[in-house]
């Protein structure tokens, strides 16, 4: 079964998402929706034979009967305004903005619990890259405290991220608890201006209680990396998980040791350059969520 979808937002993210959706066997891209007739993204869509409209959410409402999903690649404020209209039109929203109206989802971790939600939120790039690792560790050993350091190339951090860095930091930290299962989460966000630009780097620290099973934790992390890499091919560990003895006095309580996962994300280079792994992981996760909805609806026999 295929689901009919639109991308709202014709900027860099929306354009990269369009390129990925054209390859999806189960998602049919109906249109790229913008608000500026002169948008480069809309011009690119037309070149590729994708319908392009500058009529915004009005166009989506007018075509509601033909649409199952809308990918929101605008801003948190725009999505807050669009979300009720999408819901009223019966269109499921997959939200790439930090609006956080729906449950935070990471494919392969908690998506199956939220397949019926009218609105699914993709957290942040840092959350997509690190919450799965925390969840993997938590599946093998309790994680009283998790901390991540997410470093992105300056050139891949747009004005939205920069002007809202506080929300970005807090939302990412919260996902370590809500999705990762940590008792307490902390996120550190760094922008690196090196030229040529660096690939996105993520370091995940998880506190471990006494008696943890090193092989089980390492195995769970390596399995999870493979699961994420299935939809983000450039997602990889730079080193095998590292175990360091403490003790550590963490905000989640004393910990005997910590496990550290050093990760790198290279983008697929669909539209955005390969160094922008932080943006690639968002668009790749969005497509994976859409495909999972298509699979679920097919198995439930829900009419398209």
């Amino acid at each position: 079964m295929t689901l009919s979808c639109v991308v709202i937002g014709s900027g860099n993210i929306g354009t990269d998402l369009m390129m990925k959706l054209r390859r999806s066997p189960s998602l049919e891209l109906r249109a790229l929706v913008g608000i500026d007739p002169a948008s480069e993204g809309l011009a690119r869509a037309r070149e590729l034979g994708v319908e392009a409209t500058a009529e915004g959410i009005d166009w989506v409402e007018a075509h509601a009967g033909e649409l199952d999903l809308a990918f929101e690649a605008t801003s948190a404020r725009v999505h807050a305004a669009n979300a009720p209209r999408l819901a009223a039109a019966g269109i499921t929203a997959i939200d790439l903005t930090p609006a956080r109206l729906g449950p935070p989802v990471v494919p392969g971790v908690n998506l199956t619990r939220h397949l019926d939600a009218p609105n699914l939120n993709l957290i942040t790039c840092g959350g997509q890259a690190t919450a799965p690792i925390v969840a993997a560790v938590a599946s093998a050993s309790p994680v009283p405290y998790a901390e991540i350091v997410s470093t992105v190339a300056s050139r891949s951090a747009g004005p939205g991220t920069r002007q809202n860095i506080d929300e970005f930091t807090r939302t990412t930290a919260r996902s370590l608890e809500e999705v990762g299962g940590a008792g307490h989460g902390k996120a550190i966000i760094i922008l690196n201006p090196a030229d040529p630009p660096i690939l996105m780097r993520n370091t995940v620290f998880c506190a471990l209680a006494d008696g943890y099973d090193e092989a089980a934790v390492a195995g769970a992390v390596e399995d999870m990396v493979a699961r994420v890499a299935a939809y983000v091919p450039g997602y990889r560990l730079k080193s095998p998980p590292v175990f360091e003895e403490g003790p550590f006095a963490t905000p989640g309580g004393p910990a005997a040791a910590r496990v550290v996962a050093l990760l790198e994300v290279e983008g697929a280079g669909d539209f955005l350059p390969p160094y922008a792994g932080n943006l690639d992981i968002m668009t790749a996760a969005a497509v994976r969520v859409g495909e999972a909805l298509a699979e679920a609806r097919a198995s439930q026999g829900v009419p398209a």
Binding site: T151, I190, I198, V242, L262
Partner: peptide
């Protein structure tokens, strides 16, 4: 050489392991 900036202390472990 890598052009790391303040705050990237995690790269110390990365470099040491390498």
């Amino acid at each position: 050489r890598r052009g790391v900036v303040g705050g990237q202390e995690d790269m110390i472990l990365d470099v040491a392991l390498e």
